[in-house]
Every structure is written in structure tokens, then in C-alpha cells.
Computed example of a mutant assay.
Amino acid sequence: MIILRDFKPQDAPHIINTLNDEQVTRFLSSKIPFPYTQADADWWINQGSKNGIIKAIVVNEQFAGCIGITARRV
């Protein structure tokens, strides 16, 4: 089962591990800090993920990633 939900503090270790993998981050925004720290994850969970529509992806009760939609300004 796939669930989209708000980020939780328990997601921090998964986020940190994923965003410290250069095989993952090479496809992502250069705005993501490297190395990715606990402070970065805390900021993302408490503030960054609150901008726009951003959800954690959970597959079979395991954190799998993130999806987001942001408004484009013209």
C-alpha cells in the first residue's frame, strides 16, 4: 500500500541516509546540502516541507521518498 502523508520526526534517519547517497542526489536539486545533517532533516520536516504541497511517500509502512507540487510564478 502506498500512502502520502506529512513528514514526521521519525523520517529523519531515512531522509539523512537517502540524501547522503551521491547516486540519489546527482538527480536532485543542487540546493540540497551535502553532507545532509540532522539539522537539515529537522529543518525540512518542521519548515521546508510545509511550503506548497509536499508529502512523504510510504510504501508498505516503509519511508520511500517525497513528492511535491509548488506553484509556478509567471
Rank of each mutant, 00 (worst) to 15 (best):
Q38G: 02
Q47W: 07
I45R: 01
S29L: 04
A71V: 14
F63I: 00
T25F: 00
I16V: 14
D42Y: 02
P33Y: 12
F63N: 03
T25C: 04
D21Y: 04
V59W: 07
D42P: 02
V58S: 03
V58T: 06
L4P: 01
Y36N: 00
D6S: 08
C66F: 03
S29N: 04
P35Q: 05
D11Y: 06
A71W: 11
N60D: 15
P9S: 06
Q62C: 08
F34G: 05
T18E: 09
N17V: 00
G52M: 08
E22R: 14
S49C: 07
D6A: 08
T70S: 12
I69T: 10
R26W: 00
N17L: 10
G48D: 02
Q23V: 01
Q23N: 14
E61A: 14
T25G: 01
F63R: 03
E22T: 15
D42H: 07
P33Q: 07
N46Q: 13
F27A: 06
S29G: 05
D11W: 05
R73W: 11
A64M: 03
A56L: 06
F63Q: 02
P9G: 04
L19A: 02
E61S: 14
Q10I: 10
Q38I: 12
V59Q: 07
F27I: 08
V59E: 12
C66A: 13
I45V: 11
G48S: 05
M1Y: 12
E22G: 04
L4K: 03
W43A: 05
V58K: 01
A56E: 08
V59A: 06
I69E: 13
G52Q: 11
R26F: 02
V74Q: 14
L4C: 02
K50Y: 01
K8R: 15
I69L: 15
E61C: 11
Q62L: 12
P13D: 13
P35K: 01
R26E: 10
G48K: 00
I3H: 10
Q10C: 08
A12T: 09
I54C: 13
D42C: 04
A12Q: 15
K8G: 01
Q47N: 13
D42R: 06
P9R: 06
A39N: 11
G65V: 00
N60M: 02
E61K: 15
I15W: 02
F27H: 15
Y36T: 06
T70L: 13
A39P: 04
A64K: 03
K31G: 08
T18G: 12
K55P: 03
E22D: 12
L28H: 01
V24M: 11
I2E: 13
V58Q: 09
P9V: 09
Y36D: 04
L28D: 06
S49H: 07
T37P: 06
